[in-house]
Amino acid sequence: WGVIGHQTVAKIAENNLNIRAKAAVKDLLPDESLTQISSWADQVRSQPEYRYTSSWHFLNLPDGLDYNSFTQTVKGLSGDNIYTAILKCGKTLSDPSSSRAQKVEALKFMVHLVGDAHQPMHISRAEDKGGNTIQVQFNGKGTNLHSLWDGKLLDAQGLTADEMATKFNKTNPAQILQWQKDPILKWLFESYQISSKLYAEVQSGSKLSEEYYTKHLPEVQLRLEQGGIRLA
C-alpha cells in the first residue's frame, strides 16, 4: 500500500489492541503512533543497510495454486519473503532475550508487512513485478496495476486514514475473532486469489474508470480492514 493505506491498517490495529499490547507499543514507541511509523519500512528499504529487507515486502508465486500447493510452495521457498519476515518479527517481539532496539525495529516492520500481506498485488507474479510492468489508464491517467492497488483506488475516495479507519470500524465481534484466528498463510492465499482475478481482468494498456473503481473499492476496503484487525 501507499502511505494512506498503511496508515489506515495501523489505525484500525490501534483501535483493536488489547490493554497489554497497547502498553507494550507505548513503551516501545513512546513518541510515535503506529500510524506514524507505518511506512518506515518503505522509507528504509533502499538504504544500503536495509537493502536486505526489500524482499520482505512481497511473495512471488506461479499461477494456479490451490491452498494446499500454495502453502507447500510458500514454505518451500528459499530466501526471505513476506511470510518468513512476519514470522521473524513475531519471534523477535515475543522473545524475552531480544533487545529493546530489536523489538522496536521488529514492531515497525510488522506494522508495515501485515499491511502489505493484505495488498493483493504484493502476493503475485515475479515476471511482471507484482503488476508494476502492466501499464493501465485509470481515469485517463497512465499508471500500472500495482500502483493502482497501492494507492490510486484509495486516493480516489479522498478520505484521510483516520476517516477510513472510522468508516471501516463496523466489523462485528464474531467476524473480528474469525479473522484474527486465520493463519498467516490464509491472509496470503486470499491476496493471491484476488491478484489472480485482477490479472485475468486487465491487459496491458487497459482503460479503467468508474466501473473498475466501483467494482473493486469494497475489496480494497475489506483488505485494509482485515489487515488492521489481524495486525492488532
Binding site: L17, R20, A23, A24, D27, L93, S94, M110, R230
Partner: peptide, 22 residues
C-alpha cells in the same frame, strides 16, 4: 491479532536512573 499475541508477555526494560549509571 498478531500484536495482541506476540506482545502478551512483554516486559519493559527497567529504566536506569541517572545516579545508577556507571
Amino acid at each position: 491479532g498478531i500484536l495482541n499475541e506476540v506482545l502478551k508477555n512483554y516486559k519493559p526494560e527497567p529504566k536506569i536512573k541517572d545516579d545508577q549509571k556507571t
